[in-house]
Amino acid sequence: MAILLSLPLALALALPAQAWGPLGHRLVARLAEPDLTPQARATVARLLAGEPEPTLPGIANWADELRSSDPGLGRRSARWHYVNLDGDGCGYDAARDCPRGDCVVAALEKQTAILADPGRTDAERRQALKFVVHFVGDVHQPLHAGHAHDRGGNDYQVNYRNKGSNMHSLWDSGLLNARRLDEDAWLARLRALPAPPPVSPMPADAPRLWAEQSCRVVAAPGFYPRGHVIDEAYVDAHLPIAERQLRLAGAHLAATLNAALGGNG
């Protein structure tokens, strides 16, 4: 899988870190949409009626856009996008890793519960839906369940062809942009991958399991490049992992929404 990386990757590596970037989050949402149950699809459509783009991909980046559109909520939810798992074997300990519930695992659990509650207002459930779509993507980006000592790769500097950036930016968008594919081409490529096994019934602790799995990607030998240099061999080896994580995220998002919405309106 030889990949020629030049200016597109260099530009991507210079961008601020956002989990998967806008492209990745839209891809996760688009992967999920066809697998929604009729009940879940109808509820999503009702909740998103009136949105500028009333679809899952249309709201997939809303939680990142809060930084400018609603700075107050953006600050309150800033820690909900990630969890730092530094324990042995990537095991999640809520008291240690998620004090006050300020991490992606607890936030995903809480927002999914709000979304699933028909007693909540549509406005509350709409906001929860936007968070859920985004946070399922976040928890599958390996460095959103990475180490505290390097702030999920943000403080781990890397170099590619004399262009500097960090590991978080590389995994957010650099690996994807290396392919020079547009959104539709990426979607077709990801859909061609083997489908993940069905998630049924949805485990009560699914967000924890997903975070721990993402952490194990970070903990695997070779994830951090030797000498802080990203070469072609690194991209050849790790782009398929990023693709698998996106495919998993799409399947897990569909399963989450079906479990939350499949039986209620």
Rank of each mutant, 00 (worst) to 15 (best):
residue 175 L to F: 12
residue 198 P to K: 03
residue 185 A to Y: 05
residue 164 G to N: 14
residue 162 N to M: 13
residue 192 A to D: 10
residue 177 N to P: 00
residue 193 L to P: 00
residue 195 A to W: 06
residue 193 L to E: 09
residue 174 G to A: 04
residue 172 D to G: 03
residue 174 G to W: 08
residue 163 K to F: 15
residue 177 N to H: 12
residue 163 K to Y: 15
residue 167 M to T: 10
residue 172 D to F: 04
residue 181 L to A: 02
residue 177 N to W: 10
residue 165 S to E: 05
residue 194 P to I: 14
residue 176 L to W: 12
residue 189 R to W: 13
residue 187 L to W: 10
residue 167 M to S: 06
residue 190 L to Y: 05
residue 160 Y to W: 13
residue 170 L to Y: 10
residue 183 E to L: 11
residue 167 M to R: 05
residue 163 K to M: 14
residue 193 L to M: 10
residue 176 L to I: 13
residue 161 R to I: 11
residue 175 L to I: 13
residue 197 P to F: 00
residue 198 P to M: 03
residue 173 S to W: 09
residue 174 G to R: 04
residue 164 G to W: 15
residue 189 R to H: 13
residue 168 H to W: 02
residue 195 A to Q: 12
residue 165 S to Q: 04
residue 194 P to D: 14
residue 163 K to R: 14
residue 193 L to H: 02
residue 175 L to A: 14
residue 189 R to I: 12
residue 178 A to V: 05
residue 175 L to H: 13
residue 196 P to N: 00
residue 171 W to K: 00
residue 174 G to F: 08
residue 171 W to E: 01
residue 188 A to S: 11
residue 187 L to C: 01
residue 169 S to L: 07
residue 176 L to C: 02
residue 194 P to G: 14
residue 162 N to L: 14
residue 197 P to S: 05
residue 161 R to L: 15
residue 176 L to Y: 09
residue 161 R to Q: 15
residue 188 A to L: 11
residue 180 R to D: 00
residue 171 W to P: 00
residue 192 A to C: 07
residue 193 L to Y: 03
residue 162 N to R: 15
residue 163 K to T: 15
residue 163 K to A: 15
residue 185 A to K: 09
residue 185 A to E: 13
residue 171 W to R: 00
residue 180 R to K: 06
residue 179 R to Q: 11
residue 178 A to F: 05
residue 189 R to S: 11
residue 188 A to V: 09
residue 167 M to H: 09
residue 177 N to I: 04
residue 189 R to T: 14
residue 163 K to W: 15
residue 188 A to T: 10
residue 174 G to Q: 09
residue 171 W to T: 01
residue 164 G to Q: 15
residue 172 D to M: 05
residue 195 A to T: 10
residue 177 N to S: 07
residue 176 L to E: 09
residue 164 G to Y: 15
residue 190 L to E: 07
residue 167 M to P: 02
residue 170 L to E: 10
residue 190 L to C: 06
residue 198 P to Y: 04
residue 197 P to E: 06
residue 181 L to P: 00
residue 187 L to R: 05
residue 181 L to K: 02
residue 168 H to G: 04
residue 184 D to V: 13
residue 178 A to C: 04
residue 168 H to E: 07
residue 171 W to N: 02
residue 172 D to I: 08
residue 167 M to V: 11
residue 166 N to Q: 07
residue 171 W to D: 02
residue 168 H to D: 04
residue 172 D to A: 06
residue 185 A to C: 01
residue 182 D to P: 03
residue 175 L to D: 15
residue 193 L to V: 06
residue 168 H to N: 01
residue 192 A to K: 09
residue 187 L to H: 03
residue 179 R to V: 02
residue 182 D to Y: 04
residue 186 W to N: 09
residue 179 R to H: 01
residue 172 D to E: 09
residue 195 A to Y: 03
residue 164 G to T: 15
residue 186 W to Y: 14
residue 186 W to H: 14
residue 180 R to C: 01
residue 165 S to F: 05
residue 165 S to H: 02
residue 186 W to V: 11
residue 189 R to Q: 13
residue 186 W to R: 07
residue 180 R to V: 01
residue 191 R to F: 08
residue 193 L to G: 00
residue 198 P to F: 02
residue 176 L to F: 12
residue 185 A to I: 08
residue 194 P to W: 15
residue 170 L to C: 05
residue 174 G to I: 04
